[in-house]
Write a protein that binds this DNA or RNA. Structure first.
Length: 364
DNA sequence: CAATCGTGGCG
DNA sequence: TCGCCAAGATT
């Protein structure tokens, strides 16, 4: 099929005929091979994407890079091959498996969603974006992505990549998030009736590999002939974004208690809020308040170096307090977890950092 | 609606 | 070293 590079953005879609536009043609040649993806070739041979795998991957990919997701996706699909298996698992096991991936509300909502699908929908995900949107943890993006990729619904998928691609294609100079509705309108106009899932993934692949945030590779872009921002020489400056407020520094304390049999004192954090539902060491609430009472009376040793960790909206510095206690210790907070049952990898990263530091640093 | 919610990589 | 950024959802 001949490409039509002089027809502006109309080269993106098929214009009503059966010829793939420049974007889908590019995708057919350059689609990345990803564990959760059924490529164009397999797709043409009749292989259908598994809605469970599509859902799982899309939730993991929310605000998270492909590189970070790979191993987690492999572990989850190997451990829980379908939505029934996941729905039947204990909360603590799933939270531990998610540890390190971040945004832990996703894991809590993942389980809620799995249990709704398994319990109320016979294990089958709703086949429309509207139906999917009603499930926990599935917002506008994820609903559209699953509907398009797994169910061939011509839903418009708008993630950060798509926002960037259309902001450049149409040279939208209004900053985000104000520009969002306009970008969605543009993205909707580009969504084809055929192969909507491939179109969505092509837009995202393009944004991830060619139309990148900084120094886009316009020379390699299949949409360059129709790109207004490139024509104006401002592609690399779009999309504009509202300036972000500075991150304050917060201080806090953690108490790491090792019992003589090798058990560690841990506590489950409340469901709501930062690191909600995850395991951690007892401590202060990180609001710059003075150190709270330790979880038990002991000879405490302060670690010289502090844990530094940056969250989405603040920098954290944690002072660590260590103690070794006997078998008769009875803490006011938390539970002793036997050494054989304790894996640092089950902790969120900031807690794992604290554990690693406590094991290696000298007292100060 | 604006704030909240993780982490690792990159320039 | 540090700000920016990544296939957003929830409240």
């Amino acid at each position: 099929m001949p490409e039509r590079p002089e027809q502006g953005v109309s080269i993106l879609c098929d214009g009503g005929d059966a010829a793939p536009g420049a974007l889908l043609a590019w995708y057919d040649r350059h689609a990345r091979e990803l564990p959760w993806r059924v490529g164009p070739a397999a797709r043409a041979a009749g292989v259908r994407p598994d809605p469970y795998a599509v859902w799982l991957s899309e939730v993991m990919l929310q605000q998270t890079t492909v590189a970070a997701v790979r191993d987690y996706f492999a572990h989850f699909t190997r451990t829980w091959p379908d939505v029934h298996a996941l729905a039947a698992e204990d909360d603590a096991v799933v939270m531990a498996a998610w540890a390190g991936l971040g945004y832990y509300a996703r894991a809590r909502n993942l389980l809620k969603c799995a249990r709704v699908v398994a319990g109320d929908h016979g294990g089958r995900f709703p086949g429309t974006a509207e139906g999917l949107r009603a499930l926990p943890g599935i917002g506008p993006y994820t609903a559209a992505a699953i509907a398009a990729i797994a169910f061939d619904e011509p839903a418009t998928v708008v993630d950060g990549n798509v926002e960037r691609v259309v902001a450049r294609l149409f040279a939208v100079e209004t900053p985000l998030p104000t520009a969002k509705p306009e970008l969605v309108r543009h993205a909707t106009a580009l969504t084809p009736a055929i192969r909507p899932g491939d179109h969505a993934q092509a837009m995202m692949d393009l944004g991830a590999t060619i139309c990148t945030p900084r120094k886009p590779a316009c020379a390699l872009c299949p949409l360059r002939p129709g790109c207004a921002a490139h024509r104006q020489g401002i592609a690399g400056d779009l999309p504009r974004k509202r300036a972000k407020p500075p991150k304050p520094v917060r201080l806090g304390h953690l108490y790491l208690v090792r019992r003589s049999d090798g058990a560690w004192l841990l506590e489950r954090r409340p469901e709501a809020g930062l690191l909600g539902g995850m395991l951690g060491f007892p401590g202060s609430d990180w609001s710059d308040a003075p150190a709270p009472a330790p979880p038990l009376a002991a000879e405490w040793h302060r670690v010289g170096a502090e844990v530094r960790h940056t969250f989405t909206h603040f920098h954290l510095r944690l002072t660590l307090h260590l103690a070794e206690v006997g078998m008769d210790a009875s803490p006011a907070r938390g539970t002793f977890v036997p050494g054989a049952d304790f894996r640092p990898a089950d902790l969120p990263t900031v807690m794992r950092k604290a554990f690693d530091l406590a094991r290696t640093a000298q007292p100060g």
